[in-house]
């Protein structure tokens, strides 16, 4: 490598990185006045070059266009990823065995586990509804985790949406509240004649339907989650027809926390009893009862009632927190 090449390489390197001797045709920026305080003096050692280095120009270009190029790349890559994933899944679906409805050949999904569930579940769990028996006895641990997830979500939503506004100093009235000068608890019901006339007829029926779905959870389709959702809808209807203040009289934040926690604790205890006796092969003291009666199925009925209370409270809490921002 001769001297010329070295010189060119050095110049090129200086041009890229920006330090080293100044090129001949460089415009020198005026020296800063020496009496400036330290903090206002330019600290950048490249600042004596008026010409931006390649890196600076690259950074400027990136600031100008980087986001645009990133968006294009991101969109293209995500479309590509979705296409690849969907085609892989479609190839898998093409290899799946047909379900029983389209051909009489049994598919591997209907193996001895399913046969055992269908044949022995009513006798072993005492529940006529096989799904309820499966949900609360064979797969009780999963349902327990599910209810814990719902409780955690309700508590975190209450923390995020309720707690910041509970502070009286931070409280800002919503536009509706500011217009009427009262908060959502003192505001009367909305002026909806149809809703007001229909609510007294509908609410008892809905409550009764919800209770029936919960109590018959181990006999007919339904159960704690479905019935609890119906009860929660009744609460929401009452809040809309009579105003949030009327519901708040018997179901405020304290009642929500107490009822949900109590339901979860009772459910945990009954689940834990089942887990303990099941895991240790112990004799349980709760009889399975006659299949088809209300009082049958061991601990499924109390578990359903607890889950129903929890679901109703959680749904109403979500509604109030999202619509009014407080509970």
């Amino acid at each position: 490598m001769n001297e010329d090449t070295k010189e060119i390489l050095k110049k090129f390197f200086d041009w890229v990185v920006g330090n080293g001797p100044r090129p001949e045709n460089e415009v020198v920026s005026p020296e800063p006045p020496p009496d400036l305080p330290f903090t206002q003096r330019p600290r950048d050692r490249y600042s004596r070059f008026r010409e931006a280095t390649l890196r600076e120009r690259y950074n400027q270009w990136l600031e100008l266009h980087g986001f645009h190029i990133f968006s294009i790349l991101y969109s293209a890559l995500s479309v590509l990823m979705c296409v690849v994933i969907v085609s892989l899944l479609l190839a898998t679906v093409a290899e799946l065995p047909p379900t029983l409805s389209t051909s009489q050949r049994p598919s591997p999904a209907h193996n001895e586990v399913i046969r055992r569930y269908v044949e022995h579940a009513p006798r072993e769990t005492g529940a006529q509804n096989i799904v309820a028996g499966l949900l609360h006895r064979y797969r009780g641990f999963e349902t327990f985790g599910e209810s814990a997830v719902m409780f955690t979500s309700a508590v975190s939503v209450l923390m995020m949406l309720g707690a910041s506004r509970r502070n009286k100093f931070n409280r800002e009235l919503s536009p509706k509240d500011a217009a009427s000068g009262r908060n959502f608890l003192q505001r009367g019901p909305p002026d909806e004649p149809i809703l007001r006339e229909a609510a007294p007829i509908l609410i008892p029926v809905i409550l009764m339907a919800g209770c029936a779905v919960i109590i018959n959870g181990h006999i007919s389709p339904g159960g704690g989650f479905a019935g609890g959702a119906i009860l929660g809808m009744a609460l929401i209807l009452a809040a809309n027809a009579y105003g949030f203040g009327r519901v708040h009289e018997f179901f405020d934040e304290r009642a929500f926390v107490i009822s949900t926690s109590t339901a979860l604790i009772v459910y945990t205890l009954s689940c834990g009893y089942d887990f303990f006796t099941g895991a240790n092969q112990l004799q349980t003291f709760i009889p399975n009862g006659t299949i088809g009666n209300i009082l049958s199925g061991g601990l499924i009925l109390p578990a359903n009632i607890c889950l129903g209370f929890m679901t109703a409270g959680t749904l109403y809490a979500f509604y109030v927190l999202f619509s009014e921002g407080d509970m």
Binding site: T99, L100, S101, A109, H110, V113, I114, Y117, V118, A121, I130, V131, L134, L135, R139, E142
Partner: peptide, 8 residues
Amino acid sequence: NINPLPSV
């Protein structure tokens, strides 16, 4: 269709 596990 007859399998209770997917419902759960």
